[in-house]
Design a protein around this nucleic acid. Sequence first.
DNA 1: CAGCAGGGGGCGC
DNA 2: CGCCCCCTGCTGT
Length: 339
Amino acid sequence: MDAAFGLVEPFTKIKGTGEEDDEDRVAWVKEESSACDCGAGVTALDGGGDPPEWSLPPEEGEKQLLTLQTVHLEAGEDPLVVVQQGHGLLQDLPAGVALSVQEGVCVFYDLEVIQSSILQERMQAKNLESKSPESPVDMLLIEGGEKELFSVGEAKSLDCKASGDLLVSCNKHKQQEYVNPSEQAVTKSPKSLKPQISTSCQKKVFNCDLCAFTSLRISSLNRHVKIHSDEKRHVCHLCLKAFRTATLLRNHVNAHTGTRPYKCSDCDMAFVTSGELARHRRYKHTLEKPFKCSICKYSSVEVSAALLNLLGGFIDFQILRFQYTTLKCNRQFFIYDFE
DNA sequence: CAGCAGGGGGCGC
DNA sequence: CGCCCCCTGCTGT
């Protein structure tokens, strides 16, 4: 990402795949569950009505929550998203209502669309037309201020994470990169992007049957599966509260007893968990504020505050991290800077 | 700014 | 399998 992509453009436009095809600048954006979703066992929220002809019928277990369609844009127009179908929390939105993309995102946030799932684009028609092997499937193409096209979509690669890894591709550079949000949260650098794992990748991936979790380790999957059960074998002898893991219980008991193993080397504070200590040190000693707003000079120790600041203004697509909502995981749709 | 619960990666046994 | 470490999200002051 270059500096030219920075503060000038308040937001981006959503386009179809044909960046040179101005007559066909319609993209279909749909929120839905998918093969990488947590839809299993969740009550459908279908708002009823026949799907538009361009919309494929949901597959079994797939929950189509909201269908959005961008409309043709003239030069200089604000990008629009047209609600084709509203479902769930958004089912009261009349079909055909147009929101700017920016407003749309704010609406998502204000409504706390905890039931929204994956923002995904139906590009099947255009992909059929386009024979380019680089045309991403199920991508939302986002045009930047320098006519760059970035596509953001659900990672369909084999190691898609439950928290919502996304693919980011920059057509200008004709490459596709794989975004791992957890990595970026640490590195804060797009250099951490690693190549998308192709479908020809032979690595064995273990998938959770109950949600979108995948792991390259069977042990991680076995441990993960336990979160879907109510079994909590570790019980606090002081308050009888139960926990899934011994670590959680230990931390809990330490909170009871006042045992704080993690002591700050620069003051007298001590904490139950290392994470608390690390955060304390950022607040009081290192003054590090890793989460920076890409629009203003605001920065924050904690990501949630930075996110609120970012959403309070407009949203810059220079570098974004998407964390989408899944029905099961009950996550909000987040867009925030991670540089 | 801190407390606390939850979850995943990595690693040793 | 258990544990450590780290990160995340929510909440209270």
